[in-house]
Write a protein that binds this DNA or RNA. Sequence first.
RNA 1: GCCUCGGUAGCUCAAUGGUAGAGCAGUUGACUCUUAAUCAAUUGGUUCUAGGUUCAAGUCCUAGCCGGGGCACCA
Length: 504
Amino acid sequence: MEDTNSLIEQRRQNLAGLNARGVNPFMNAFSPDAQCGTVRTELARWAEWNKSVEPKGEPVGLAEGTRVRLAGRITAHRDMGKSQFLDLRDVSGRIQLWIQPKVLGEEAAEIFKLLDLADFIGIEGTLFITRMGEPSVKVESFTPLGKSLRPPPGKWHGLEDTEIRYRQRYLDLIANEPVKEVFLKRSQILKEIRSFFHLRGYVEVETPMMQAIPGGAAAQPFKTFHNALGCEFYMRIALELYLKRLLVGGVDKVFEIGRNFRNEGLSRRHNPEFTMLEAYEAYGDYATMMETVESLIRHLALSVVGTLKIEHRNADGDIFKTIDLSHWRRARYKDLVREKAGDDWFQVSPEERRRRAVEDLKLSGDIAAGYEDFEVTAAVFEKLVEPTLIQPTFVTHLPKQLVPLAKISAEDPTTVEVFECCINGQEIAPGYTEQNDPIAQREALEHQAGGEQQKLDEDFLVALEHGMPPAGGIGIGIDRLCMMLLGQESIRDVILFPQLKPKA
RNA sequence: GCCUCGGUAGCUCAAUGGUAGAGCAGUUGACUCUUAAUCAAUUGGUUCUAGGUUCAAGUCCUAGCCGGGGCACCA
């Protein structure tokens, strides 16, 4: 970027002015002893205590007169001439600074004039409450810490240009407080997921992202090349096959949180790289994992969002959707399809089903000529059922053709022991009773590979032949989970740096 | 890949085909408690790019670039 304008030029001149006075505006370090937002809250608590009627009891918070050292970015400047007010902001929030250039001395006053909005400074001073009741710091000294050479986005309207928000997320984080909240909460979600599984005795592992054969899902992979080994690798599309090797190896409860890469279209719900959680529990089955998913998501909602009723708001701030995580429905695939497609859906002929799907249900664009009967029903489920599953629903008893790698249900051999946990109209988490029969697994993988032998992960099949315990497994798309929990409608709003086309 | 909407000052937005403008920010000045500070003055533009139509294009046409939404792809 070589764009220059007068705003940048002015800042460069202020930088030159600081240098000319022997001031280094890019310090190596500074040691604050408190955080802006925390100090503001604690001082306000003390003020509340101080004005309460007798008996007051023990003082709380931070008292007026307390000395603090703070560091942050200048986000507002209110110039009263002999009295100046700044807002200083760090990750915890903001606090007002009161600066009297005259009190600082002539030299410091000159340096103060060379500060710009968005500069980082460190200050030392004492706490006090203004006449207007604003918790503030009376600044005794300040140090420039990091100069900003470009103007920040507007403080009032924030930053709304989606392209800049995504390409220069740091500006989005500076200008839009709610955006920062979302990403701080995403961090908490990840932390709580880890502690949830650790408490249940799971082991967290990291498995290869570069794989010779990308297995565990059916998606287009990215390809790369390793120079020293002289061979191609694929970026992983799923975590599954390595985690199952670890079940073979005796790690009975194992999970991984990591990035998957899929070379497919982008949308509000798809980013080429996305974060997946997979967890496997030996001697468990899909029912075990349903309990795990429900407990995990309840825990995340309560610990991070503070409620089981998740509100999604539109641009005007009105609630347009509330997801109630206190009730989890369990429903059979066929029953859900019947609700939308008619009670006799599975009694009529395949030809009649196809006719109804195309003509009555208006799915002509979603049903290709070569679709088999189960795919026609699958289209009904995908287009008409799944988007309506806003409230948490475990869909069970899926037809076996739909999920070829899962274990057949003992109670109904036309179905498999699989669930799809749908919330917010999306599949959030599939769960399986995992296949541990190496012969059945080989047949299924060979069928899936469609005769292309090089797509068969022989190493994985050998691992299964050494014996894998029965196990339940789940995968949870973390980005979509965050969308649901944090009330975001686009995956780009829960991924810090979503994939965009490079600017030419 | 297809359909559709959009791109104007640092930010948020205006501008019947007829001199590109406002608010905020910035700059200068005033003010010893302001907080979207206030008041006065003021700077700032390759209207995404390249062509075209026209006496005249931010505006109309063509192509392209980037972004949003939708579709397709996607266990």
